[in-house]
């Protein structure tokens, strides 16, 4: 076969130029965060952002991760990272479990008003946390769940979007599969665990990505419901450190704040990279 090399057209060059510029634009702040982290606080408060690497990177990361900070000097970066992971994973796993169960009930069981129930669930999309934040706070504190991990996670779990996605997916699973499983002696529980969950793997991966990042980036709700610093998440922690800019009379710990920002960015990135391979695999070997 003859290899036909397509001549490079001017429009190709422009297309790539735009893409490269776009990529640079997105990456530049990350680069800036990295370079700035590698200088000490004195230099940073004197000269601001740094465009080249200094020699304080290790020192700043160490301080960010292991030095106790905050008002009460009782939480370090590692603990905040763990809190964030608990929130992110708990949030994503909880949401997936709950919305799968709801979708399973709606699609596979002959419930009265199942369609109605689904639309009621669906309309809750119109009521995000921000809208119902006062009643939610009232209920959660009333239940004594303030300053607990469950108080942090549970009120955010109900997910109309997740239920909707799983419902659509379950509806596309062929009816015969259910019948074959019934003949094979799989009851509702077994069918769910043995057939439906494995079939939903790619859906679960996709929703996990979205929900983990969403949970990880939660700011408003954790700020309201946790006052105990040992429950602080990374996203809050960054703020806590930079707060001393305005309140403290010492030199603000800019280096640490930048280091925390980078640490806060990493897990979502890793999650996306890790699950993406799954995601693509699922799309390529279409199994249905």
């Amino acid at each position: 076969m003859k290899t036909n090399k397509r001549p490079i057209r001017p429009s190709d060059v422009i297309d790539h130029l735009i893409l490269v510029l776009g990529a640079l634009l997105m990456l530049f702040p990350v680069y800036l965060a990295l370079t700035t982290t590698s200088h000490d606080n004195v230099l940073l408060s004197k000269e601001g952002l740094q465009f080249w690497f200094g020699d304080q990177m290790g020192q700043n990361f160490r301080a960010a991760m292991f030095d106790k900070g905050g008002f009460s000097e009782q939480i370090d970066g590692t603990a905040m990272l763990i809190n964030s992971l608990i929130l992110g994973v708990g949030f994503a796993v909880g949401k997936i479990a709950l919305s799968m169960a709801a979708a399973y009930a709606i699609v596979y069981f002959r419930l009265r008003f199942a369609t109605f129930a689904f639309w009621v669930i669906f309309t809750t999309i119109l009521l995000p946390l921000e809208v119902r934040i006062l009643p939610s706070y009232e209920v959660v504190t009333g239940l004594g769940m303030a300053n607990t991990y469950s108080g942090l996670i549970v009120p955010l779990l109900a997910s109309a979007t997740g239920t909707f996605f799983f419902r659509q997916f379950f509806l596309s699973v062929p009816e015969e599969l259910v019948e074959a499983a019934r003949i094979d002696g799989a009851g509702p529980g077994k069918f769910f665990v043995d057939i439906l969950v494995p079939l939903s793997r790619t859906m679960i991966a996709a929703i996990f990505i979205i929900m983990f990042v969403y949970g990880w980036n939660q700011y408003l709700w954790p700020t309201l419901i946790t006052t105990d610093e040992s429950l602080f998440t990374l996203v809050r922690g960054i703020k806590q450190i930079t707060q001393s800019v305005f309140e403290g009379n010492q030199i603000p710990e800019y280096g640490q704040a930048w280091a925390l920002a980078i640490i806060a960015m990493l897990p979502p990135v890793l999650i996306v990279i890790f699950f993406q391979s799954w995601f693509v695999k699922g799309l390529v070997e279409s199994e249905k």
Binding site: P174, E176, A180, R182, I183, A186, L199
Partner: peptide
């Protein structure tokens, strides 16, 4: 259906897509 001692072959086969051939046969 499971208690009737029957086996059924469906028009579109209804094989479990995530299981190997051996597991498909073994599931029941």
């Amino acid at each position: 259906p499971a208690e009737r001692d029957i086996a059924m072959v469906f028009q579109n086969y209804a094989l479990y897509p995530h299981m190997t051939v051996a597991k498909n046969m073994a599931y029941g």
